[in-house]
Design a protein around this nucleic acid. Structure first.
Lengths: 336, 336
DNA sequence: CTGTTAGCGCTTTCAC
DNA sequence: GTGAAAGCGCTAACAG
C-alpha cells in the first residue's frame, strides 16, 4: 500500500502537520526538521494523495487548457509545452474544450470547474479574447494566463511580436522585387490576425507601396478558405506576384489553387504563410513562413500561471522571439 | 457555495446514502425515491465533488490516455474521440505521455497513477504493444483498452482490418495497370505496419505479381524517411510505377523526392499513403489513401474501457470500417 | 429497500 | 516552532 503522511510523520519522529508544512513549503519549520522529513519522504517514496489534498485544502494542483477550435497542430504544441511545465512543478493538466456541440461556453467551463476545480487556466486563441469566458473566469476569481491575446494590457501570459515578424517577412519579399503583394486575412476573432494585417500595411508603407484593397481578401484559416482566396486573387485583372497568407493552411490552399490552374510556385507566383506548422515543410514547394515557438509558448504561459497561482500579483506578459524562414515557395517575380 | 450531497438528501427527504445510491446507479432503490432524488439534484444543480468521491470510494472517474510519440494528428483525433465518450459518461480524461525525456515508461506511468489513480487507460500505438507498459498495467490490475494492437487476442479495444484495406487499395492500383508496385514499410514496433505489409504481399499474390525485395524499403513513418525511401526506389534501375507508403507523411516525402528530381505525380509515378491525415488533402496532388475513423476509434475504445471498468468481464475488441479513397496521386502508368 | 456510522488522507484551525 | 483535534464531501460497511 502507498505510504501516508502519518507514516512519514512517524518515520521522521514529528507530527503530521510538520510534514504537511514541509511539503507545502510553509514557514515556521526548523531546518533540521525539514531535513528529517525530506529524508523520510525519500525513504518511504511518499507521494501525497491528490484527492485528499484538494478535498482538505483549497488547491487542486490542476491547471486547465481551455480552448475552442484552434488548429490541431497548434493545440498539440501548446499542450505539449504545458505538460512539460506541469511535470516540472508537480501540477497536472486537464483539457477543457468548450462550446463544441451546443456553443455553451460558460456551461462547459462550469462542468470542468465542478469536476476538477482547476487552480488556474491557460487560454489560447481564438478563445483568449472571448468575453463569455473571460467574464466567467473573472467572476469566479480564477487566475488565468493568455496566449496571444488581442489586448495584452493587464494580462499575464505570452505573446510574440507578430507585426514585427510580418514586417520582416514582407521586407524579404520586397527585397526579392515584389511590388504587388496580396494578403489573405485570418478570422477577425483571432487576435493575432489584426497584428499580422497591421504588419502587412506597415510594411507596404515602409516600402513606399500603395495599399490596394483588391489585394486583401478575408480567409478563415482553413485550407479551403485558402483555395477560395487564392482563386479570387489569381482571377484579378492584375494579379499579385506574391501572396502572404495569415497562416500555413491557407497558404497551402493558395498553392493548390495555383497548381490547379497550371501555375508553378514560386516561378509564377510566390506564396508565404505563417506559423511553420508541419505542412509548411511537407508540401512542395516548402513554404516560406514565420516560425513561432508554440510549444515553448505553452510552457511559458503555464509558468506565468503557476507563479500567479502561488502569489496573487506574480506573473507577467512575456515575449518570445519569432524566426522568419525563407524557403522554396518565394522567389523574385518573373517579369524582373 | 456548491450544494453537497447532504443538501440534496434534505431537499428530497431521504438519507445521504440513498442519494449516493441513485447517483451511482446502484440497485435497491424504489423508483419513487429515485425520482425524488433526481428532482432535488436538478433543482439544486448538484454535482458530486470528484475529490471527495475518489477519496472515499475506489473509483476516480478518470481515464488516462497513455502514449509514447505517435503522429500528432493521430493523437489529436484519438484524444478528441475520447473526450466525447468521457463527456457522455461523466468521466474525465488525463494525458499520460510516457518515456518522453528519459525513457522511463513505467516510472512515468507510476507518477500519473499516484496523482490521478485513473480507473483505466487507453493505449495507442506504438505503445499498445509495449511490454513494460503492459506489465505495469497487469501488475497493478488496471483495466485497459488497446487501439490497433499487434496481438488482439484477449484484449479489449478497437481495431480496423488493415490488411483488407491494403488489399483493396492495391487492387485499385493493379486495376489501373500497375505491375511494379513498391512498398515503404512503417516502423516494426508499430503493430499496424505488419498488417499493412501483409496486405501488400497478399495483394501481390492475389494479382499474380511476383514479390521483389528491391521494391520494399523500410521507413520510419516520418516525412524525412519518406524522402529517403522515395529516393532509393526512384534510383532503382527498374523503378516502380507506383509506391504505396505505410502512412501519409511518408507518401508526402515520396512526392517531395519525385518533385525534386523533376518527376510529376501521378504522371510519372503514382503514390499512395495510409491514414487520411489532413496532409493527404492539403498537398498537391491530393493523396490516394485509406481513411480510418481515428476519432471514432478513440471513442469506441473508451466505451469498451468504461464497460470493463463497470463490469470485470465486459467490453470486447470491436472492429471499425475503413474507406479507400482514390484521389489525384494515382493513375494508370505511362507506358500503357 | 433504507438509514447510521465511521472513515478515505490531507489541511486547517487553534492551542501550546 | 510545533502538535492535537476537527473536518473537507463522499462512500463502505453494517444495521435495521
Amino acid at each position: 500500500m502507498r505510504s501516508r503522511i502519518e507514516d512519514v510523520a512517524a518515520a521522521a519522529g514529528v507530527s503530521m502537520k510538520t510534514v504537511s508544512r514541509v511539503l507545502n513549503n510553509e514557514p515556521n519549520v526548523r531546518d533540521e526538521m525539514r531535513q528529517r522529513v525530506m529524508a523520510a519522504v525519500e525513504k518511504l517514496q511518499y507521494r501525497p494523495n491528490l484527492s485528499a489534498r484538494s478535498l482538505a485544502g483549497q488547491r487542486s494542483y490542476v491547471v486547465a487548457l481551455v480552448y475552442n477550435n484552434p488548429s490541431r497542430n497548434y493545440l498539440m504544441e501548446i499542450q505539449s509545452g504545458m505538460l512539460d511545465a506541469c511535470r516540472d512543478h508537480h501540477y497536472n493538466l486537464v483539457l477543457a474544450p468548450v462550446g463544441s456541440p451546443k456553443q455553451r461556453k460558460a456551461e462547459d467551463l462550469k462542468v470542468v470547474f465542478e469536476h476538477f476545480a482547476p487552480d488556474g487556466v491557460v487560454l489560447i486563441p481564438p478563445l483568449t479574447d472571448d468575453p463569455a469566458v473571460l467574464e466567467f473566469l473573472e467572476q469566479h476569481e480564477v487566475p488565468y494566463a493568455s496566449i496571444a491575446p488581442k489586448h495584452p494590457e493587464g494580462r499575464i501570459g505570452v505573446m510574440m511580436d507578430e507585426t514585427a515578424a510580418v514586417l520582416e517577412l514582407m521586407a524579404g519579399l520586397v527585397a526579392q522585387g515584389h511590388r504587388r503583394i496580396a494578403h489573405i486575412k485570418g478570422p477577425p476573432a483571432h487576435g493575432a490576425c489584426q497584428w499580422r494585417y497591421k504588419g502587412y500595411r506597415d510594411a507596404l508603407k515602409k516600402a513606399g507601396l500603395e495599399y490596394d484593397a483588391d489585394l486583401v481578401v478575408q480567409g478563415a484559416f482553413s485550407f479551403e478558405s485558402g483555395i477560395a482566396a487564392g482563386d479570387a486573387l489569381l482571377d484579378l485583372k492584375q494579379p499579385p506576384t506574391a501572396i502572404f497568407a495569415a497562416n500555413d493552411d491557407m497558404a497551402a490552399g493558395v498553392i493548390r489553387a495555383a497548381c490547379e490552374r497550371g501555375l508553378a510556385v514560386p516561378r509564377d507566383i510566390s506564396v508565404c504563410g505563417f506559423d511553420d506548422t508541419p505542412i509548411a515543410r511537407h508540401i512542395y514547394p516548402a513554404l516560406t513562413t514565420v516560425r513561432q515557438p508554440t510549444s515553448e509558448m505553452g510552457k511559458l504561459a503555464t509558468l506565468q500561471l503557476l507563479a500567479r497561482i502561488r502569489t496573487a500579483d506574480a506573473g507577467s506578459m512575456v515575449h518570445v522571439e519569432h524566426e522568419v524562414l525563407f524557403r522554396e515557395s518565394t522567389q523574385a517575380p518573373k517579369g524582373r
